[in-house]
Amino acid sequence: MPARAARTPAPASSEALLSIGQVLARLAGEFPELTNSKLRFLEEQGLVFPSRTRSGYRKFSMADVERVRVVLSMQRDHYLPLKVIRSYLSDLDAGKDPAIPGAGAGESVQSIIPAARRLGREDVIAEAGATPHLFGDAISASLITPSDSYTEDTVQVLRALVELQRSGIEPRHLRGFRAAAERELALIESALMPISKRGDAASRAKAQEISGEIAGHFETVRGSLIRQALGRFSG
């Protein structure tokens, strides 16, 4: 196993840095099997190098997210072992233009991995049928992370906020959603810590399975609480 990169604090920058949960949300459409344990494993293997906050939390730049996308695409589409992918990325980092092992001659990662559709701020607002003011409120409430470009997931979130606004529910009323999601992620990470520490393939697979189960149980409890509250309201 390669030596792990030094854990440096997240730099002070205008670029939005993403948590593990936010990275998973961005890549879920392309890689539904991606989990927080898989992201940690890629870091342990020297394939991606997220920065750290002073508290030790991983923070990913947009460049880190694209690097994860490249690694996962090479695994999925070319069945390449991580050792080969690591060597390929090292050549890229060194300024070279290597061909992907097993791909056509001279074929680069940009030519074989289709880029996810990226949308500008105005495009997102138009497709969601929203207003610039609502978009700004969503960012202020931490429901949308500010960026130079956005994905289809952002459009879906903004569409939901448009519908909620029609019922008198504004983004500011949902500020607790982000904190709740982060708390749930922390609970999952804590529960899987004993398994994740083992590091072997079987343990990683088990951790991935359990994390999905825990998330499903959270949804069940949350849904039940909402239904109970709605029942009291109807009564």
Rank of each mutant, 00 (worst) to 15 (best):
G29K: 08
E33M: 09
N36I: 01
L39K: 00
E43Y: 05
E44W: 09
P50A: 14
R52S: 03
T53F: 00
T53N: 06
R54I: 08
S55G: 12
Y57E: 08
R58S: 06
R58P: 06
K59F: 11
K59Q: 08
K59N: 11
F60K: 03
D64M: 09
D64C: 03
R67I: 07
R69Q: 12
V70H: 02
V70E: 10
V71Y: 05
L72G: 07
S73V: 04
M74L: 15
D77I: 02
D77E: 10
H78P: 03
L80Q: 01
L82I: 03
L89V: 01
S90Y: 11
L92T: 07
G95Q: 07
K96P: 05
K96W: 02
A99G: 11
A99R: 08
A99S: 04
I100L: 04
P101D: 05
G102S: 02
A105P: 09
Q110V: 04
Q110S: 00
Q110F: 01
I112F: 10
I113L: 06
A115C: 03
A116W: 07
R117N: 09
R118K: 11
L119G: 04
L119S: 01
L119H: 10
L119F: 14
G120T: 09
G120P: 03
R121W: 08
I125Y: 08
A126N: 12
A126Q: 13
G129E: 10
L134K: 04
L134E: 10
G136F: 04
D137I: 02
D137K: 11
A138Y: 11
L143Y: 04
Y150C: 03
Y150W: 08
T151K: 01
E152W: 11
T154S: 15
V155N: 00
Q156I: 09
L158R: 11
L164Y: 00
L164P: 01
Q165V: 00
Q165L: 13
R166G: 15
S167H: 13
S167V: 03
R172K: 15
